[in-house]
Simulated scan of single mutants.
Amino acid sequence: MDILNTILLVDDDDTTNLLNKYFAEAIDDTIDVVTAVNGLEALQFLENSDIEAIGPCLIILDVMMPIMDGWEFLELFNQRFDAKFKEQVTISILTGLDANKIAKKAKENPLVQDTVEKPLSDEKFRALIGKHYAEKLSQ
């Protein structure tokens, strides 16, 4: 069962990326899981990828990161990619700090579909996949 093609985990915490990669692969081992430690690395991955080949894509984005944080990533993502590309991408904010404030700010950004509090458990990950890819889960 091929749920989605790519999950891009963007977090400066290697342990968080490792656990989230494990959860994704446990749901479907055909998912291509890519990690980036900041928004700049994530943008570079997306700019150098063929979205037709990797899409649909789920981006799980931390907001507090060095070099380029999640908010800066969202701003540049919106500027650099066309509407067709953005349609293939689901962005979920992952946060552990001041979750209510971040959730409020995330709701104001049309690129963000939802906010998930750290730590991301297997249950939360399955709910996230189910929410955005429910039609694919039933196939």
Rank of each mutant, 00 (worst) to 15 (best):
S92H: 09
T35N: 11
M65L: 10
R80T: 11
L61R: 01
A42W: 04
K86M: 10
V34S: 01
V34R: 12
F81W: 09
K84C: 00
F45N: 11
N48I: 06
P66W: 01
L94V: 12
A42K: 06
Q88M: 13
V63C: 01
V63M: 06
L40N: 08
F85I: 14
V89L: 06
N38H: 15
R80P: 09
L43C: 08
F45T: 10
I93E: 00
V37D: 06
K86H: 08
E41G: 13
G70A: 07
V37L: 00
L43F: 08
D50K: 12
L94W: 02
I67C: 00
Q88N: 14
G39V: 06
P66K: 08
N48W: 02
D82H: 11
I60T: 12
F73W: 10
E87A: 11
L40K: 15
F45I: 13
M64N: 14
I91D: 01
P66Q: 07
P66F: 00
A53F: 05
S49L: 07
I54Y: 02
P56H: 04
V89R: 02
L61A: 01
Q44C: 03
D50N: 15
N38M: 05
K84P: 01
L40P: 01
Q44D: 15
L43I: 15
E52R: 12
Q44I: 11
W71N: 05
I51M: 12
V37S: 08
L40Q: 15
G55H: 10
L94T: 03
D69P: 12
F81G: 07
M65N: 09
I67T: 14
N78P: 06
P66V: 05
Q44G: 09
F77M: 09
L94C: 12
C57K: 02
Q44Y: 07
E41M: 14
M68F: 09
G39E: 03
E72T: 14
D50W: 04
E75L: 09
L61E: 04
N78F: 01
G55F: 09
F45K: 12
L94K: 01
Q44F: 02
F77G: 02
E52F: 09
E52N: 15
D62G: 12
I67E: 13
D69M: 07
K84E: 14
L76W: 07
Q88A: 12
